[in-house]
C-alpha cells in the first residue's frame, strides 16, 4: 500500500512538472499585458483575454506562418508517404546489382546530422534562388533513411508468393506495389506520417536559415523572431505558442497508441 502511494506520488509529481508549464502557457496567452508584468504570481487571468489571439495576427503575419507551416510540413509528409514505402519495398523485395552498396550508402546518411548539411544547403539554395521559397524549405527533407528503413522492415515479412502470383497474373510492377504491397503497410504508414508531420511542424534550424522575409517564416521561427522584436509582449508570444502546440497535441491525443508504438519501434534493433 505504502509502495503504491509512493509510486502514485512520484508519477503525479512528474506529470505536474511536464504538464503545468504548458497549462501556464495557456494562462499566459489569456492575460493582459499588465498581468504578465505584475510582481504578483498570476496563476490564471482575472478575465481571459481571447482578443490576444486576434492581436497576434495584427502584429505579425501570423496567418502566413500557419499556412507556411502547413504547406511545408504537409508537403514533406506527403513526399515521405510516397517515397519511403516505395524505396523500402525495393530494398526488401528486389535483387539487383549494387543493392548492398546502395543500401549501405543510404543507411550511412543516418549518421549525418542536419547541421553538417546546413551551410552547403544554404549555399546551394542561394545559388538556385531557392532561399525564402517553399521548395527551398521542403526539398532537403523529402525522404529520410529512417523512414525507408522502417518501411523495409515492415515490408520484408510480406510473402514473396503474393508478389509472384500477381506477376503471373500479369500485373504491372507499379500495380503490384500499389495493390499488393501498399495496402498492407497502412499501420506503418500511419506512424510514419505522424512522426514526419510532427517533426517537420516543429523544425526550427532550417526554416531559420533558409528564410529571410517574415512572410515566408514557419510558426516556430516566426514566433521566435516575433518574441525577439516584441520581447515584452509575453501574452502574445504565449498565444502564438499555443497555436503552434495545439495541432500536435490534438494529433497526439487522437493517435497516442500509434505514437507510443512508433517510439518503441525506433528503439528496436
Amino acid at each position: 500500500m505504502v509502495r503504491k502511494s509512493l509510486l502514485y506520488g512520484l508519477l503525479a509529481l512528474a506529470s505536474l512538472v511536464t504538464v503545468l508549464p504548458l497549462l501556464y502557457m495557456v494562462s499566459l496567452s489569456l492575460q493582459t499585458e499588465a498581468e504578465t508584468l505584475s510582481p504578483d504570481a498570476v496563476i490564471w487571468p482575472e478575465s481571459p483575454q481571447w482578443g490576444n489571439y486576434a492581436e497576434l495576427f495584427t502584429r505579425a503575419p501570423f496567418g502566413n506562418f500557419i499556412v507556411n507551416s502547413l504547406v511545408v510540413a504537409g508537403a514533406i509528409t506527403l513526399a515521405h508517404l510516397i517515397f519511403d514505402p516505395l524505396v523500402g519495398y525495393v530494398f526488401a523485395k528486389f535483387r539487383f546489382p549494387l543493392r548492398n552498396t546502395l543500401f549501405v550508402a543510404l543507411l550511412a546518411t543516418l549518421m549525418v546530422p542536419f547541421f553538417v548539411r546546413m551551410i552547403p544547403l544554404y549555399v546551394l539554395m542561394a545559388n538556385m534562388g531557392w532561399l525564402d521559397t517553399y521548395q527551398g524549405l521542403i526539398t532537403p527533407f523529402l525522404m529520410d533513411a529512417f523512414g525507408i528503413f522502417l518501411m523495409r522492415q515492415f515490408i520484408q515479412p510480406i510473402p514473396d508468393d503474393l508478389i509472384s502470383a500477381a506477376r503471373i497474373d500479369g500485373a504491372s510492377e507499379l500495380a503490384i506495389y500499389r495493390r499488393v504491397i501498399l495496402p498492407q503497410t497502412r499501420p506503418a504508414l500511419a506512424v510514419l506520417a505522424l512522426f514526419t508531420f510532427v517533426f517537420q511542424w516543429n523544425e526550427f534550424l532550417w526554416p531559420l536559415v533558409a528564410t529571410s522575409t517574415p512572410e515566408m517564416r514557419t510558426i516556430p521561427v516566426g514566433l521566435t523572431l516575433f518574441n525577439q522584436e516584441y520581447f515584452t509582449l509575453w501574452h502574445l508570444t504565449a498565444a502564438g505558442s499555443v497555436i503552434l502546440f495545439v495541432p500536435t497535441a490534438v494529433l497526439f491525443v487522437l493517435t497516442q497508441r500509434y505514437f507510443v508504438r512508433g517510439i518503441a519501434l525506433t528503439g528496436l534493433k
Partner: peptide, 28 residues
Amino acid sequence: FRVLLLVPYLTSVAIVGLLWRNILDPEL
C-alpha cells in the same frame, strides 16, 4: 500518466525555449 509525461516531447524547441525563458525570468 504515460500521455501526460510524453506531452512535452511534442513541443517545438521554439516552445521549450520561449516558455522556459519566460518561466525562469528573474522578475517576470
